[in-house]
């Protein structure tokens, strides 16, 4: 055998465009990450220090204490809005929001695509135009409805009014329309009724799509701020994003705001969405770009 591996060790010339690409990417990442790092730094400092000097380049020794305060200490009167509690609430909101949107969106899309509804197209466009009416626009009537139904300070009050989703319906509709007609017909001949077809065939086929939707919707739900602020007045119902503000807002005379604690909570609030995106990245890309058919 002739050894041909020699050629492989030859140095590749440095390509300037590659360097440039990387420089742009690194600059972009720093731009996004630096604020987080600064916030992280402040969590290691005593609050008085932060108020005096602002962010610095040294790492202090208050991290443990701040973590302790952030997770288990309550800030309000009832003592129920601990970091852990708020995190749980945020999870319930994120999961309920994502789950609700996916289930509702899939079922709406199923009806629109597979059933001969007389006004299917009109219905679709009506659903679609709700994209122009986000929660912020209809927040007063929504609040009134929820209040009249006695759903203030409940989880369903927090979740249900948000889950009717044009986005999910739209994506699932596009996906279902790309499922081959013959598959539907084969299933019909195989004796699968509408429910069986949905559960046995359509849902498994939509796996990657569901995963992608889940990520988007979870992050969206987790980051909700306005609605939880309106709906929840009891401290045990606070979500992270809403609760953090409460901490820096304590107006007890000359008390120093707890910057360390609230900044640490801010970091903690960022972690789950980031983790979900990182873990499900490949699914995410797959779901939005290719279909497994």
């Amino acid at each position: 055998m002739v050894d041909i591996s020699v050629t492989r060790t030859a140095r590749r010339p440095i390509r300037w465009t590659v360097l440039l690409d990387h420089a742009v990417l690194i600059a972009g990442s720093l731009f996004m990450l630096l604020p987080l790092l600064i916030v992280l730094q402040t969590t290691t400092m005593p609050d008085t220090d932060i108020i005096q000097h602002g962010p610095q380049l040294k790492i202090g020794d208050q991290f443990d204490e701040n973590l302790q305060k952030a997770m288990v200490q309550a800030s309000g009167f009832s003592g129920e809005n601990t970091g852990l509690r708020m995190m749980l609430n945020s999870f319930i909101l994120g999961l309920g929001f994502a789950f609700g949107k996916i289930v509702l969106g899939m079922m709406a899309a199923y009806a629109l695509v597979y059933f001969r509804l007389r006004f299917a197209t009109i219905a679709f466009w009506l659903i679609f135009t709700t994209l122009l009416l986000p929660l912020e626009v209809r927040i007063l009537p929504s609040y009134k409805v929820v209040q009249n139904l006695g759903m203030l300070n409940t989880y369903h009050g927090l979740i249900v009014p948000l889950i009717a989703s044009a986005t999910a319906t739209f994506f699932f509709r596009q996906f279902f329309r790309s499922v081959p007609e013959e598959l539907v017909e084969a299933a019909r001949i195989d004796g699968a009724g509408p429910v069986k077809f949905f559960v046995d065939i359509l849902v498994p086929l939509s796996q990657t799509m569901i995963a992608a939707m889940f990520i988007i919707m979870f992050v969206y739900g987790w980051n909700q701020y306005l609605w939880p602020t309106m709906i929840t007045t009891e401290e045990s119902m606070y979500t992270l994003v809403r609760g953090i503000k409460q901490i820096t807002q304590v107006l007890e005379g000359a008390a120093v705001p707890e910057f360390g604690r609230s900044n640490l909570l801010a970091i903690i609030a960022v972690v789950p969405p980031v983790a979900i995106v990182i873990f499900f990245q490949s699914w995410f890309v797959k779901g939005l770009t290719e279909s497994d058919k």
């Binding site: 081959p180 013959e182 086929l205």
Partner: peptide
Amino acid sequence: QNYALYPH
């Protein structure tokens, strides 16, 4: 014609 097998 396209077999229409259930892919999953």
